[in-house]
Computed example of a mutant assay.
Amino acid sequence: MRELMPLLMKGTLVTIEIALYSILLAIVMAGLATALRTAPLRVVRWTGNIYVEVFRGTSLLVQLFWFFFVLPLAPFNIELTPFTVAIVGLGLHYGAYGSELLRGALHSVPNGQYEAALALNMSAATRMRRIVLPQALLNALPPATNLMIELLKGTSLVSLITLSDLTFRARQLDESTFRTAEIFSLTLVIYFVLAQTISYAMRHVERRLGKHISGHGAAPGK
């Protein structure tokens, strides 16, 4: 255990870093894509829909390979580091799923909330900020937690583009020590602990947001 853990911990730190940055990018892309898909202009809506359908409809592994191996070639001539490729690939891929999730959460807000806000002569921006988004985010948090855990597990694919993440370190140790059972059992435990950490943190956020909404009242004017 003392021999294996230091190297696995180095890989774990890389996995955590990739996951955190990718989650932040996925949140930004989910919000941006949802805004594009609900825009009044058809061309803008198409842009958001194309992004979501392309990244949902193709393999994450192939997307990572495309960013890593194809972008440096002509006519793109864009060379990204493996770390950047991992963040961009995971962020864009899961951001597309997040957009669909957020759109469903927005539709889950009762029509009565919109009507009450209109009756109080709230602007569209105020209605979205004070009434719709808090309730939609509360509805979106449980499936968003699952999506973040899926993203965490998806980081194991970045070992195939030469990043020394947890999975890469585990394979490296296995090839040099042949202690397969111990190494991959430890790797499973580490991924499980990381996933449970995300789940616990998101439950805390969900409770805080739920208290905030119930304290202010779901309906406008309360």
Results as ranks from 00 to 15, higher is better:
L152M: 13
L120V: 10
P134G: 09
E100M: 09
E100H: 13
A96C: 12
V132E: 05
R127Y: 01
I161L: 05
P142M: 08
N139E: 11
F168P: 00
Y97L: 07
I87C: 07
I131Q: 03
L152V: 10
Y97C: 03
I190M: 02
Y114A: 00
R171I: 06
E182M: 10
G104I: 00
N121G: 10
Y191F: 15
N139V: 14
V189M: 14
E150A: 15
G89K: 10
Q172W: 14
R130Q: 09
I78C: 08
L163F: 03
E175L: 15
P134E: 08
L188I: 11
A140F: 11
R130D: 09
G95D: 06
L157T: 01
A86D: 06
T167S: 14
L166P: 01
A136K: 07
F83E: 07
P82W: 08
M122S: 00
M128F: 15
L186N: 10
R179C: 02
L160N: 11
T167P: 00
K153T: 13
D165S: 11
L194K: 04
I190F: 07
L138R: 14
I87D: 09
S99E: 10
Q135S: 02
S108R: 08
F192P: 00
A119P: 01
M128A: 03
A105M: 09
G112I: 03
A144T: 13
I87S: 10
T180Y: 07
A181D: 11
I190C: 04
V88S: 08
E150M: 12
G112P: 01
L188A: 15
Y191V: 08
S159I: 00
V85F: 07
T145Y: 05
R127D: 04
L118M: 11
H107A: 15
A116R: 06
V85E: 10
L194E: 02
I131L: 05
L101P: 11
Y114R: 08
G91P: 03
V193T: 03
G95N: 03
Q113T: 00
A144V: 07
D174F: 12
A105C: 13
S156F: 05
R179A: 09
Q135W: 03
F168A: 13
L186M: 12
H93K: 09
G95I: 05
Y191A: 05
I161A: 06
I78E: 12
I183N: 04
L138Y: 14
T84Y: 10
P142R: 10
S159H: 05
G89L: 08
V132W: 04
A125K: 07
L102N: 03
L106K: 11
S176M: 15
Q135G: 05
F168E: 04
S185A: 15
A125H: 12
S159P: 03
F184D: 03
T145W: 07
L188Q: 02
M122F: 01
M128E: 09
T177Q: 08
A136H: 09
G89C: 02
F178E: 05
R129W: 08
G89N: 04
L163I: 15
Y191C: 05
T167I: 04
F168K: 12
E175Q: 15
S99A: 15
F184V: 04
R130V: 09
A144Q: 13
D165L: 13
L188V: 14
E100Y: 10
A195M: 12
